[in-house]
Design a protein around this nucleic acid. Sequence first.
DNA 1: GACTCCCCCGGAAACGTTTACGGGTTGCAG
DNA 2: CTGCAACCCGTAAACGTTTCCGGGGGAGTC
Lengths: 345, 345
Amino acid sequence: MHTVAARAGVSIASASRVLNGVGGGPETVRKVHAAAEVGYVPNAVARSLQSQRTGLVALAVEDLGNPVYAAMTRAVEEIVAASGRQLLVHATGGRVDDERALLRRLANRHVDGMIASLIRVTEEHLAAIGDSPVPVVVVGRLGADAAVDNVRTDSRAGVALAVDHLLAAGRRRIGFVNGPLDTVPGAARAAGFRAALAARGVEFDDRLVEVGDFRYDAGRAATERLLARARPDALLCADVLIAVGALHALLAAGHRVPDDVALVGMDDTELARMVFPQLSSVSLGSAERGRRAAELLLQRIAEPGLPPRREQVPPRLVVRASSAAPSAVPTVAVPGPLELGARGR
Amino acid sequence: MHTVAARAGVSIASASRVLNGVGGGPETVRKVHAAAEVGYVPNAVARSLQSQRTGLVALAVEDLGNPVYAAMTRAVEEIVAASGRQLLVHATGGRVDDERALLRRLANRHVDGMIASLIRVTEEHLAAIGDSPVPVVVVGRLGADAAVDNVRTDSRAGVALAVDHLLAAGRRRIGFVNGPLDTVPGAARAAGFRAALAARGVEFDDRLVEVGDFRYDAGRAATERLLARARPDALLCADVLIAVGALHALLAAGHRVPDDVALVGMDDTELARMVFPQLSSVSLGSAERGRRAAELLLQRIAEPGLPPRREQVPPRLVVRASSAAPSAVPTVAVPGPLELGARGR
DNA sequence: GACTCCCCCGGAAACGTTTACGGGTTGCAG
DNA sequence: CTGCAACCCGTAAACGTTTCCGGGGGAGTC
């Protein structure tokens, strides 16, 4: 900038004004533009220091490799990039102390805001968010009293959708492969499962419930443990990766899907359409939640005074072959028709 | 900082020194720490302005939802986070002008370096990288004369691995579903395919070749076009998403895999193990390339004077059910055993 | 012709740090 | 007691912008 001003024979202030398009006489504009043509680019850090905003937005998720978070990250990136900002990603691995460290680092104002997808929410999380000088939007369920922008789904209702669907198909011994119970979604889905069974007058049998991590290997291993001691005629899985693991465990154990065991996953993603048989899933709208969270954050950055908002993305049951009624199952191994336009950017 | 200094009754300089752990008398240290305890956090932007580094590293990939790039992003994030830096991600959608804009924006020194995974490399790319004041590492094949840090694989050799494998299994009419020919990997794989066939004395038949995008839908549609006019006994796909699309097209058309048509994909990812039958794939080490690129970048940030380096991750063929010899195919639909430790962080 | 208004420009302060420099104090040795 | 070194600390400059403020000049109005 100094160089540009000198070369144009004007003051630094004038050069800055011209390059920002505010003010400047015609002659000055011409000279400054001529002087800057040769390759001046403003220093973003200095500009941030002055303007008190960095144009950066952070996103913290558990695991970038999980298709659920990949979909969420992609959706967030799209919105953030469209606003002219850039996206910073953090993989927390679900480690609560890492998350707290991230939230505390917000105080250094390195980013204009943050979207935190939390599966374990502690008091310290909320305290750090409350203290943060920059806005934070939480994706995931929070306590009713938390004054924080929040995008959530209703996984209890989602579980109920799946349970009703399986019961309506005549299944009675519904197994459940859940994620860790000390996570918010794990706990919610466990509670939802018991509640849904109770609401339909079906007896709860804890031998039909198994717990693992939200991962393929863990889901497969958990399902193997479950199958070793019980005989479900349907299986509900708390995650798409768990569901694929369960599918493989079922097939490897010689069970036909859905004839012997119907299978429903949660967190519908492209992956659900890619396995065979294609997986019925309760969509929890991970991309949609990411999109909404990004929009909330951008709005709040623009208008910090807004009251805290809470948005809910309703779950939606997508029925595919893995839980179709046995009569409807094609006799040959044929994936469904190509669903055009199902994605793509 | 000003406040801390005032509260401690020392100068701003002393406060800064103490908080950075350099110098400071015992009494001063005590007072400053006491004054800072109540919640001082340094402003990262101001520090960056002074220190001329931001602690940020950027990664540009085509699509965050593609499992290949998800794996790469995860690997990069891991290395970058371990070095105490943060990762900025960009989804370019393969749009060359977006990529160029990103590269040019590097001039504003907002990040300390960048990893660019390019599928189309133009002269302007190289020019922008050459002009960049911060280091850039390119993932993907570059011309031999480009003086740029570079991590690549050898997809021609990868294609040859797959072709040899299929020929050894007795297949003769090998189809090829490629990505766009105006991308570097698409062109390299097309050339590799012809070369591999020629090297084995197999005649090239262009009715067995089809082109689509590196996506599921496109791969499925391209395979349907190919099947409508030709009768391959094996299919090689240039990408894992294309391969899954091809698998579904084959099954939907009534072909058995691998009995009627053997299938091999490229870019091995977790997804290849999740479909049925599990996909044989040529691993191009996407996570490994990400890891190496991140390491190269960090080294160069530490030592800018190094000569440009070039690393190559060799392709590796992973044979699974989709291309097993027909005799080895289990008669029931059973995924292979659980491969423990295949991933997880 | 004087006054007002407006526009344009340059000087300088500000953003929040780090760090070079120099003055002062202390301690030790001769 | 003096000289020297070591050590602390504060002042101020620097990082590269943006923006406030005041001065100067031109045009318009009475």
